[in-house]
């Protein structure tokens, strides 16, 4: 008589299934509680380490060795190398932990640093878009007024010390002006008419400095004088009469593109940066889901 072995075989199968399920659950549980993502233990040669798959760059490590201990890789001691590496790993772990704790959401300093970092990245993008010479030259021509030289002048500002604000003073200055226009030398005029230099202008002055020293009224008169020209007596903001004698006037002139190129490039890049920044903001704004409380709608 043949005895069926089916019940035993079925029990064995069930046992094997159960064992398989248990092993599977165990493996899943282990993986769940010790998960480190899809990890690879290979460190690419350009990194000194990876921390949770984030790179710690070899170049940064070398810079840090140099900055912290003033040593190169070849001259650093084992302790120095270990210290720098430990510090960099610690920094990476703390940065990631900071993100987990949503530090950017709560700490104004972290938020500011992130905003600055994004702006820096925009600047990097702007810098990488090197303009052609033709583009720079066109920008220079469009904004020629920005690329003028600084005007400067050498002038004598005369007052009449005896009566600086009165009619006699004005008359003395007028007479001195006639003599100067006639070509008499300045020292002789000073001696003859009892007038003196105010001391507001000491030697050559760039326009902005001359304006600061003379005040608006006198400066406006001064900057229009040609070399050798003399103004009429002018009552200035200080209440005194002044006479301006222009020895040398160098008004602003457009600087050659070749000389101004560095400034042109800087300005071009700055405007590009603003444009890229605006574009980035618009893109983010379009993608974002922003709601503003109606009660506070501007």
């Amino acid at each position: 008589m043949r005895v069926s072995r089916w019940p035993e075989s079925g029990r064995l199968s069930l046992l094997l299934w159960a064992a398989g399920a248990l092993i599977g659950l165990g493996a899943a549980g282990f993986a769940l509680f010790t998960a480190k993502g899809t990890a690879t233990s290979t460190v690419p040669p350009e990194y000194i380490a990876t921390v949770n798959q984030r790179p710690v760059y070899l170049s940064d490590y070398l810079d840090q060795l140099q900055a912290q201990f003033n040593v190169t890789m070849e001259t650093a001691s084992v302790e120095q190398r270990r210290k720098v590496l430990d510090d960099m790993i610690r920094e990476e772990l703390f940065v990631r932990r900071g993100l987990e704790l949503d530090e950017p959401g709560i700490d104004p300093d972290v938020r500011n640093a992130l905003v600055a970092a994004v702006q820096s990245q925009i600047a990097v993008d702007a810098t990488s878009q090197t303009p052609t010479e033709a583009e720079l030259a066109a920008f220079y021509r469009q904004h020629l007024e920005r690329y003028s030289s600084i005007g400067y002048l050498l002038a004598a500002d005369l007052i009449a010390p005896g009566d600086p604000s009165g009619a006699k003073g004005a008359e003395a200055l007028a007479a001195a002006g006639v003599a100067l226009r006639a070509g008499r030398p300045l020292p002789a005029v000073l001696a003859q008419f009892g007038v003196a230099e105010s001391g507001l202008l000491a030697g050559e002055q760039v326009y902005f400095a001359a304006k600061l020293h003379l005040g608006d009224t006198l400066f406006e008169a001064a900057r229009t004088l040609q070399n050798g020209q003399v103004s009429a007596p002018i009552r200035a903001q200080d209440g005194r009469f002044h006479l301006l004698y222009m020895i040398a006037n160098h008004p602003p002139l457009p600087r050659d593109f070749a000389l101004a190129r560095n400034q042109v490039y800087g300005d071009y890049r700055h405007e590009l940066l603003l444009r890229i920044g605006d574009r980035e903001f618009k893109y983010l704004e379009d993608k974002a889901d922003i709601h503003i409380n109606r009660a506070y709608q501007p």
Partner: peptide, 26 residues
């Protein structure tokens, strides 16, 4: 002399792009 005077007068701040991330490390 003109170029040197211009540098002193108007300053300079040259720029070189960063190539990290745009060229391979090697």
């Amino acid at each position: 002399a003109e170029q040197i005077s211009d540098v002193i007068a108007y300053g300079r701040s040259g720029i070189c792009p960063s190539w990290s991330g745009r060229l391979p490390p090697a």
